[in-house]
Amino acid sequence: MTTPFLDIILPVWSNPVEIRSCLVSLLPAIKSGARLLLINNGCNRETELLLEEFSDPLGEQAIYMTMPRNIGFVPAINHGLRRSDADWAMILRPCVTIADNDCRQWVEAGAASEKAGILVPFTASKYPELQKLKLTDFHCLETATINFDLLVLSRRMRQQTGEFSEELDGGKWCLKDYYQRAHTAGFKTCLMAGFSFTTEETTIFGSEERRRIAEENSRIQCQQKWGVERVVAVYQPEVKGETLCAVIDDALTAARLGHRLHLFLLRKQYREAIQAGAHLLHTNIRLHKLPLLSPLRTLVKRLLLLSQTNPDLLLVGDVTGFGVSDYPQLKPCSSLKELIAQTKVSGVIN
């Protein structure tokens, strides 16, 4: 068999009903030339039989790997990644069912984006705030949020970033760490429309206390390594034209580092930003249009709301003229650049 365009890595542990529907949904992708890497991660006999029955008729299009014991989810993924030699590798949880997509076309569209390292399918349920953007087929915007439910990784990127860290929590922080490594190596994470899937709720096992400790340790490790991700509100009413583009560029750089940016824009600025495509740059950038009448009052209201959900909200910009005594985190315009430099330094040091 020639090297497939995609390796689908599926670590499995004893849930035959769920796994059956996942495997069946993968058939169109396999038919289009993808290869299945099935990892039996210590399954019971019933599931083992199912995996064997499914993989046998697929011949070279399925590689069935049996682990002598359950090695855990992330090590199983790493095992699959080590075996994968296709240009792209899809990581899938068994609780996911893929709709009848044109997998090859989707991956090829992703590969066409410059420096795309990680592809994440866009689903309206997971990104409700992006629903109004009405993303069309294969439309792509950058993101900093990835999920083990479904991820597609390029081989070029994997060769530089290595494997997922097995030291971390096997969830949120492990993924953040991987994203940051990919970003540091110069690869983009693209959220792409045109690939639909459904996912059942994943059962998370293990005592809550142990999970909490693992998550806390991972958070500390990650933040030491990559810096703390901040929520930043930017309000610069005077900027326009090229200066506004420069602000958007800074926002994009910050968003790529994992910070979440809220750009508060006056009507004219908003129109300019939309024309520049700022709304389709990164999922971590949100544009807020301020009304023509009393924009400051609206700004204060929205900032209040935002600071309620994000107590450490950082407000950056020119805030002369409105009461901001409630915002101790108020910083001058240059702070965004400082934040970027600070985060980059911590990434480089580590």
Partner: peptide
């Protein structure tokens, strides 16, 4: 024990 995911095996050890 071998086939139990590490998260659950850790609880059993405790």
């Amino acid at each position: 024990l071998e086939r139990t995911p590490p998260e659950l095996a850790a609880d059993i050890v405790d």
